[in-house]
Design a protein around this nucleic acid. Sequence first.
DNA 1: ACGCCTACCTGCTTGC
DNA 2: TGCAAGCAGGTAGGCG
Length: 297
Amino acid sequence: MPELPEVETIARELRPLVVGALIREVWFDWPRVVKHPTPDRFSEELRGREILDVARRAKWLVITLSGDGVLALQVKMTGQLHLVPAGTEHDRHVHLRFELADGRWLLLRDVRKFARAGLYRRDEAGRVLGADEVADLFAEHGPEPLDDDFTLRAFRRILRRRKGRLKPLLLDQSFVAGIGNIYADEALWRARLHPLRAAASLHPDDERRLYQAVRAVLTEAIERRGSSIDDYISLEGEGGMQHYLNAYGRTGKPCPRCGRPTRRIVLGARGTHFCSWCQRLPAAQRTPQVQRLLASA
DNA sequence: ACGCCTACCTGCTTGC
DNA sequence: TGCAAGCAGGTAGGCG
């Protein structure tokens, strides 16, 4: 399930392989994979473009093209990129294919058809212009958690503007970009914070631990080339972070810190894993509604 | 305006 | 053994 570390890994591995390549033809068998401009214009406007760079913003792959073009790919949950020699047979889950002039195909394979691709323009400042050609495509996204200017001070500033509980907040891409279900659970486990904890109730020390936990878990996951759970695989194969998760997917298994069984609750239709001993919820926040939620799991 | 919920998808797991 | 319901979740869009 690609989140920031997985998309970053794909970008880093794809970049040296395709920079300088020319897109000769584009094929797809599922029109809805094309998000922008239209399925008709997509292939036509991509033909003849050169790939200048591959980068990541939030959970998007951002491929800079010649002629002010930007190809933005969202692999979402089950999307994969593969680079194969032209003519290689692929299965029915490949829905989009970029045929490169050098005799290779870049394939987007996605079992669940959630992945999307769009061709956008960039302005002089390098901003990607969204569908209306004025607003930044990423205007609604929060800061990149691993950027140098994402400091503890900056984190505190945006955190203190938010209400609500920590788990849904971490998943909110307009709060901080790139965190998904796996690393939200991992960051909260590391920071010893309960997923239902009200963001407004954090003490300065809690804020610091959460900030450090988010950065540390994402950094470690990138070093391990992401977590290969379900369908995620990068161009050079599986990642390794799935072997180092402390909370996500460990329902009933002992907490690596205290040995007590890992709990799982459903929060906003997301499986949420935590240690109820290490990640305590202050008594004042154990409202009847929260009690019911915790008891139902 | 914000937070919460559902639809989109299909393969795998679970339970009868 | 077979079949169907349930589950997985990133994100857009809708609702209250």
